[in-house]
Design a protein around this nucleic acid. Structure first.
Length: 555
RNA sequence: UGGGAUGUCGCCAAGCGGUAAGGCAACGGGUUUUGAUCCCGUCAUUCGCAGGUUCGAAUCCUGCCAUCCCAGCCA
């Protein structure tokens, strides 16, 4: 049986490896890194990786570097480095010392390339990219050696220096590792190490016109930073061979305590996409309002939607870490945010789809101030005052002329219901407009039922929420639903064809007056409706629905 | 017979030769001025399939099957 401490500490294959490495004395400190490429916004999948890398390091009393993997100036942008820094910080993690960039090590990479050339393990190749592809062979057929493969060390040294000096045009040549054109790992068939790009880089500007490839830069960056466990996703499993090959062939890094790469499966979320490319497409095609659209599974989108950093960290822990390709239920994410907000969000009342009630036996010009708890289970969250008068709003869904069955716990004609934090009322009659829609519901209230049940033993089961009409504040509500209609959008190339037309529905209703100056992104529970937070847009009062309350009432 | 990985409850996921943790979901029941929360209970005789080794197998061996990844001068 598990003892208590094995229950709160997550166990996964990476921790098992770390435990063993520490026990064997392979490392004396756990150092990880989170290495995003600044070519897009971070999403929930990255959040899992951040929690894994930062969380694990912290847990073992080590540290994690935030390192921008910026080796391709063509795709990268400073806008993204800023948003990424912001998102990581918001998630609650602090990087060790200053932020790292792969570009910090450009000189180092260059020297490593020189070392490989001198060891006859790298050469400058003038094959065009098409020719290179042909020479590479296929999955089942071995490749052929490049005619430039046997140039002398001196020739290669001169040529590579010329590449660096900008004497060759883009695409004219590349530096390649000399490994094995017959390898069953495609990435070992003399992979490209450096290519020429006359491009201004956001960090190094025009200092370089040759840029290292991921496979060359990543392992060296890890080694330079003293990373112990380099954790990445499954698609890099083959690349681990070149990671190991490079470090083995560089004298400075060929040591027992050099970094090793471990791969885990990336997060896939139901009805969402964690493809950077598709996310960017949604933004570029204006299928959503931006990277921070609350329907986006980006960290900034989730934040705007009302998700908290705590809930995202909790979610990461709940889904765990493994090597299995999976598609995670959205309900796991939802239960994480509900757990957090249930204990931390103050309650308030909002009527999202309003209908008016007139309480016939309530005095004409009277306005009462009633005391309402901000949290039913936590008195420390205090009380607020709410208004009550002859005219109030309730939600249309909380009234039906004739109760459909005896399980119906809402208002109907001749049926009593409790107004949350106020009195019991009974509907007497309704007034409809020309179109046949209900205009007003007339009720009678029982003045003896404020803060207590009827003394004659009547049992009133239903409770509905309301807002007093004269003090109510108008508000706009963004009701969100899943962005895609298919559970697994990754199966679709044309993502625009599976967009949920009802992913955003805008409603206009009323909130309690004390919400007039609600703080942006602060969570509230609108009782019986769900969790909401104020949107950052400065026009009027807009609330985003984070998630609904759990609903076990099946009609 | 290219290679690399993975298959444990509807969805995640522990388990590492001693007789299937946990979470989410679902389903019963109780409390409740939120059909919420909370509480209590139910939920894999079985681990992709078939053989084998063993006193004993999800764990070891063999063979199948299924799914994912790799042929960027992307990461």
């Amino acid at each position: 049986m598990n003892s208590k401490n094995t229950v709160d500490k997550p166990t996964n294959f990476i921790r098992n490896i770390i435990d063993e490495d520490l026990l064997n004395g392979k490392y004396n400190k756990v150092i990880t890194r989170f290495p995003p490429e600044p070519n897009g916004y971070l999403h929930i999948g990255h959040a899992k990786s951040i929690c894994l890398n930062f969380g694990t390091a912290l847990n073992y009393d080590g540290y994690c570097n935030l390192r921008f993997d910026d080796t391709n100036p063509l795709k990268e942008d400073i806008e993204y480095v800023n948003s990424i820094k912001n998102d990581v910080k918001w998630l609650g993690y602090n990087w060790n010392e200053e932020i790292k960039f792969s570009s910090n090590y450009f000189q180092k990479f260059y020297e490593c390339a020189l070392e490989l050339i001198k060891k006859e393990l790298a050469y400058v190749c003038f094959l065009s990219s098409d020719e290179t592809r042909e020479f590479r062979g296929t999955l089942k057929k071995p490749g052929k050696d490049s005619p430039y493969r046997n140039s002398t060390v001196q020739e290669n040294l001169n040529l590579f220096k010329k590449m660096k000096e900008g004497e060759f045009k883009e695409g004219k040549c590349v530096l390649r590792a000399k490994i094995d054109m017959k390898s069953s790992f495609m990435c070992m068939r003399d992979p490209t190490l450096y290519r020429i790009r006359f491009e201004t880089h956001h960090q190094t500007e025009d200092d370089w016109c040759i840029y290292p490839m991921y496979d060359f830069a990543h392992c060296i960056s890890d080694a330079v930073e003293g990373v112990s466990h380099s954790i990445c996703t499954l698609e890099f499993q083959d690349n681990r061979r070149i990671y190991d090959w490079i470090l083995k062939n560089l004298d400075e890094f060929n040591k027992p305590d050099r970094p090793y790469q471990y791969e885990f499966s990336r997060l896939n979320l139901e009805y969402a996409t964690t493809s950077k490319r598709k996310l960017k497409l949604l933004v570029d095609e204006k299928l959503v309002s931006g990277w921070d659209d609350p329907r986006m599974p980006t960290i900034s989108g989730l934040r705007r939607r009302g998700y908290t950093a705590t809930s995202i960290r909790d979610f990461s822990e709940r889904v765990g870490v493994s090597k299995v390709n999976s598609l995670t239920d959205i309900s796991i994410l939802e239960s994480s945010i509900r757990d957090d907000l249930n204990t931390n969000a103050p309650r308030t009342m909002a009527v999202i789809d309003a209908v008016k009630i007139v309480i016939e036996n309530y005095p004409e010009d009277k306005i009462e101030l009633l005391k309402a708890p901000n949290h039913p289970q936590n008195n420390e969250m205090g009380y607020r005052e709410i208004y009550f008068s002859k005219e109030i709003y309730i939600d249309k869904a909380d009234f039906q002329e004739i109760a459909p069955n005896n399980k119906f716990k809402r208002l109907a004609i001749n049926k009593e219901v409790r107004l949350r934090n106020a009195y019991i009322i009974k509907a007497t009659r309704i007034e409809k407009n020309k179109e046949g829609n209900i205009k007003t519901i007339f009720c009678k209230y029982d003045p003896e039922t404020l803060g207590r049940n009827p003394t004659d033993g009547r049992k009133v089961k239903g409770v509905i929420h309301f807002v007093e009409s004269s003090r109510a504040i108008q508000a706009e509500f963004n009701i969100y639903d899943r962005l895609f209609i298919d559970r697994n959008p990754s199966k679709f190339e044309d993502i625009s064809s599976i967009i949920n037309p009802d992913s955003l529905i805008i409603k206009y209703g009323y909130v309690e007056p004390n919400l007039k100056n609600a703080e942006v992104e602060k969570a509230y529970q609108f009782e019986r409706e769900g969790y909401f937070c104020r949107d950052r847009s400065d026009k009027s009062l807009i609330f985003n629905k984070t998630v609904g309350l759990r609903d076990t009432w099946n009609q």
